[in-house]
Simulated assay, not measured.
Amino acid sequence: MTGRSSTVLIVGATGSIGRHAVAEALRQSYVVRALVRDRARAVRILPDRVDLVTGDLTRPDTLGPAVDGVDAVVFTHGSTTSERDVRDNDYTGVANVLKALNGRRTRIALMTAIGTTRPGVAYAQWKLRSERLVRASGNPYTIVRPGWFDYNQPGQRTIVMLQGDRRQTGSPADGVIARDEIARVLIDSLHVDAANHKTLELIAGHGPEQDDLATVFAALTPDSAESLDAAEDIVDLPTESEPEMFRRDLASIREGRPKDGD
């Protein structure tokens, strides 16, 4: 998909990454829709050109108008490192939006975090489960796991994409990246064919930002259609041992996958 007449729904649009994603999508000539809980606040924060749709990620009955007719969904929402908050907001929001799409093929860009596969980290496991739902949905997608926000130095702007999620110190030593660059990668992924079915960790290297990210995306290994996990990840979370909540969502989303030709 390309910009201009394509409509992109930004989830988490008033957040620190979401605002950059809105700006980048507008710059690339997308029609931008924002899912917001507080319309009055959103009016103060977001540009006039953004179509504001009131809804709540935790209330599926409110999501229909937000997803109606969209060509892409960009998830930039995120909560704390509390397992309950990540489960009830980050994960549940992804599950509810995917279900609300009701089988319509839609381009997905999901932001999670570097270190998502760290063993035994409860909140990270719910982020990982949201990734699994996206992979199972049958939609074209890119999953972006950014490093630590805004720890980059002024000259540290070269976009670097890694795979395998091997950096797991839980500190900026894992990699750093600017917020606007996270947004740029999410929005670019919507129209770069080489980004489809890719999962990546996103950090910055020393040097200038690239004008074109197609070759960077192209160097990545695509996820297997036969697996719920990313191409080079090491994950030990058997589906049969997962929480009932996840298994129920997974079954529902698999049942509602877009049909060939949709």
Score class of each variant (00 low, 15 high):
T2R: 15
G3Y: 12
R4F: 15
V8F: 13
T14K: 06
V22L: 12
E24K: 13
A25Y: 08
Y30P: 15
A34E: 09
A42K: 03
R44P: 01
D51S: 15
L57K: 11
R59Y: 00
G64L: 12
H77F: 07
T80V: 00
S82D: 07
D88E: 15
D90E: 05
G93L: 02
V97Q: 10
A100C: 13
I108F: 05
I108L: 14
M111L: 09
A113I: 01
T116W: 01
T117P: 03
R118T: 07
G120Q: 03
W126A: 01
A136S: 12
Y141H: 09
T142D: 01
T142L: 02
V144L: 03
R145C: 01
G147Y: 00
F149E: 00
D150V: 00
N152C: 02
I159L: 11
R166T: 10
T169S: 05
T169D: 00
D174A: 00
D180H: 06
I182C: 05
A183N: 04
S189F: 02
H191P: 06
D193G: 04
A194P: 04
K198S: 04
G205D: 13
P208E: 08
Q210Y: 08
D211I: 07
V216L: 14
F217Q: 08
A225L: 13
D233Y: 05
D236R: 08
P238I: 03
P238Q: 06
T239S: 05
D249V: 09
S252T: 15
S252V: 14
D262K: 11
D262Q: 13
